[in-house]
Design a binder for these strands. Structure first.
Lengths: 230, 230
DNA sequence: CTATATTTGCGTAATATTAACGCAAACTAA
DNA sequence: TTAGTTTGCGTTAATATTACGCAAATATAG
């Protein structure tokens, strides 16, 4: 009897977006019955014939219509054997990023509502999804300091002040604008475009672009991205 | 039909040990039939009523008798839906460390043989276990540079030269002995004992001990462990 | 007993990186 | 015109890293 097992395998995605100088997570309102509505992370059971990664992509596609700029596995939640009250379910959580600056999300087939939720205004979610988000934020913060994933949250062409702001708000730290700029520019993977951004006040700012190719070349040469703060 | 699912959930553990200036992984010889023997990572199916973590601990206990000094979740392998030819199985892999310097392993109930295998002499293993090991080594290397897990691979009291050697062999890098010592000592979480180690030649060396308490206090103060190499 | 090889433990100088600022340029709004 | 704001480029001081030198403490060989 030792080997009897009836465990369901699900995937969930924590999708981060950044706009209006704030960090957001993508949430959906789950239809259980017609009562009992809960906000939750997009996700669902893995199908028999699809890989874990395919499952997340499918679920995200069914429930939202965002275009991911980054995705990787985050953590597998299966220590609380009652995390789902109906069956034993373990969930493989994925961590994803998206450029939310100019993106309209709409509910798709599976979910009633899809919504960006500010990171500090997240309600109590279904299952252990609040836990997943915690872990996701942890990963986001860590990764921001040793991989150039900040660019995946911004539009292709962005202002230095936006990049700086992204770092400050997500890491909840102060930073010297001038040193930050110098450091990032010194890496040599940013390109100045000849476009300017419409600004409300102050000197017009050049738009920059992240050159992933150049970054990869640097990586091969042993380069190691790092942004530290005091 | 969309929701039909028959996926088994397994756990596997990659246990690292360090002795004789080399890195080892713990392998077991699986009994399938009486033919068909393969080396594999310790692991097995999760029971209905135990958490993932409990499952790994149990399996390790059943198959080996090592005393872990560190364990955390590594990665969940479920993208290759044929990774096990019999059923669809996803495996949650765990990453563990052990002080192998003074440890005798013996096969326990479940496994025929248990053995330390040198990291560069690993044969083709069952399932995708070679892949898991790759991922494990990656994690070990990364973690060694930003968390003090090296001490979990050494005896409680160790020589500086052993610590240095551990870093050099695992990270496959050269390092200046004197700068390394200075840097680690500057952190202030090592304690000198009044014991000396029996040495074959050269000046007798003091034994040191890692004070986890002091390390945690430092962490609270915002300290960030880091060992970098050129 | 002495010389040699070996490993430890401590130090110092050159170099590189980070942190803390100053300030003019280029715009908007009043 | 003037005041307010944001950008872009510098400089300097403090800190950290790198590259070594060298004596102390042992074992071993002669």
């Amino acid at each position: 009897m030792e080997n009897f097992q009836n465990i369901r395998v699900a995937v969930d995605a924590i999708v981060f977006g950044y706009k209006n100088n704030s960090l957001y997570v993508l949430l959906i309102e789950q239809k259980f019955g017609s009562a009992d509505k809960y906000w939750a992370l997009p996700g669902g059971l893995v199908r028999q014939d699809e890989s874990l990664k395919e499952a997340v992509i499918r679920e995200l596609h069914e429930e939202t219509n965002v275009h991911l700029t980054f995705m990787e596995q985050l953590y597998t939640f299966g220590d609380d054997i009652y995390r789902d009250s109906r069956n034993r379910v373990i969930s493989v959580a994925y961590f994803a990023l998206v450029d939310a600056s100019n993106l309209e999300i709409k509910a798709d087939t599976d979910a009633d509502k899809v919504q960006w939720c500010k990171i500090n205004e997240i309600p109590t979610l279904a299952f252990d999804h609040n836990l997943i988000i915690e872990k996701g934020i942890e990963r986001l913060k860590a990764k921001l300091t040793y991989e150039p994933i900040g660019f995946d949250l911004l539009p292709q062409e962005f202002l230095f002040s936006d990049l700086e702001n992204l770092y400050c708000t997500i890491l909840e730290k102060e930073i010297d604008r001038r040193n930050f700029r110098k450091k990032i520019l010194s890496y040599g993977f940013l390109e100045q475009t000849d476009h300017f951004s419409p600004v409300k006040s102050g000197r017009p700012a050049k738009l920059f672009r992240f050159n992933k190719l150049k970054y990869n070349v640097l990586l091969d040469k042993g380069f190691h991205f790092e942004i530290k703060f005091a």
